[in-house]
Nucleic acid binder design. Structure first.
Lengths: 220, 220
DNA sequence: GCAAACAGAATTGTTGACAATCCTTGCGCC
DNA sequence: GGCGCAAGGATTGTCAACAATTCTGTTTGC
């Protein structure tokens, strides 16, 4: 019990609670999500839980089958690769747009992140590097100002957190991705959309190549 | 009354009815979707309608605000362009994958569509060409075998049908896009992923350029 | 004449109970 | 001993009624 905040005020935010529980790993892939159980765990009505599950199903985080209830959707390795392939091209688009639209302030922010990344790798701070990685990609998306692309990426990332997480912990991963990240920042700072897109795609292609070696936390 | 099939068996398929009504233009952008009204129009319970609206909101087709109900979401011209930009890169990915994976049968199908397109343009059959256009893109997606990309494209296309439709009716549009479509098919038949992606991107870039001239059916 | 407060209608949000469906368990039969 | 089968429990789907909120039109006071 009490693994996650229990009481919840209203109802509309049950989605966030369930989503976080899935992301944090409290609900593992293929685990059944019984409406009655969730409603007592989160202190919400069953209808609220039901609505949340419908919404999460549309987000691709849970699977719902008629009269059989909902379970946490397991994304196979093959699907994780497909997701990353789509991410590759969409983030490539964002990188190109970012190169076109970045203000001087944006460039300063990106350069700061790049510098911090260098430091983190030098210090061997894997967790800090992972966080900076997240922030770099988020900043590129924000600078690009493409809300549609951002929405697509959010959805895809949500389904993939598990694989992404494993990847970051792979020893030696940081030293491989660091130069790729630096090249992305450099290309954007040079305001060269083509180069920025190519750099982002090269980086994610490298991620895709590495994915199989982290195995399937949520096998077939 | 009786604008749309009224009686419906159960409830789960209310989403399809509402979705189609939006696509067919029966529900125009920004139109309010009152739960009670829909429930009598479709002969379903209010709870079923409510569930459908939650789902459609997650799909991005309707907008829901607390205590204020749902309305058909209006996609601005700017957003339509963003959607098409994302489509551009994702369909580009699909074209590349299709070039890699197409079987001889697939190529025959694509060539047949290309031939029919030529005929349709020659005959001045705008509607037939529009349908072939739809089928070409669908076939490329299917051949690519990328279910994740297909899902993303479905979602985006669903939000954009209105603009797409207007575009197809633009006089002289077909003669512009025909050579682009032929090049896409040729590139895939040559099993050249890079060329296929470039061709698809060029085609959609042309679509994006043309979008502003069809104006905003659902203004600001 | 205009702004603010007020009642009434319209609409959504929520709850609880009931019906339908599916899975499990135990029994009888071959 | 294995297999079909019915009863029971568990879980989801559905519904109708109630509570809460927002919107609309009117009235009142200045």
């Amino acid at each position: 019990m009490s693994t996650v905040a229990e009481s919840v005020g209203g109802a509309g935010d049950v989605v966030d609670l369930v989503r976080r529980a899935i992301h944090e790993g409290e609900f593992v892939p293929n685990q059944r999500l019984v409406e009655a159980d969730l409603s007592v765990q989160f202190g919400a009505s069953r209808a609220a839980v039901r609505t949340a599950l419908v919404q999460l199903a549309a987000e691709g985080l849970v699977e719902r089958v008629q009269n059989r209830g909902a379970r946490v959707r397991a994304v196979s390795l093959a699907e994780a690769i497909e997701i990353s392939e789509v991410r590759m091209v969409v983030e490539g688009l964002c990188a190109a747009k970012a190169a076109e639209r970045a203000t001087d302030d944006d460039l300063a922010t990106l350069r700061a992140i790049a510098a911090d990344m260098r430091d983190a790798v030098e210090r061997g701070d894997v967790f800090g590097y992972s966080e900076l990685n997240r922030r770099l990609h988020a900043t590129v998306r924000a600078v690009a100002g493409q809300s549609v692309a951002a929405g697509v990426l959010d959805r895809l990332r949500g389904q993939n957190v598990r694989h992404q997480f494993r990847l970051a912990l792979l020893p030696g991963r940081a030293s491989v991705s660091l130069p790729q990240h630096l090249e992305i920042v450099e290309a954007i700072c040079a305001r060269d959309p083509g180069r920025a897109e190519a750099a982002m795609r090269a980086h994610l292609a490298s991620v895709i190549e590495t994915l199989p070696s982290v195995g399937g936390p949520s096998g077939a």
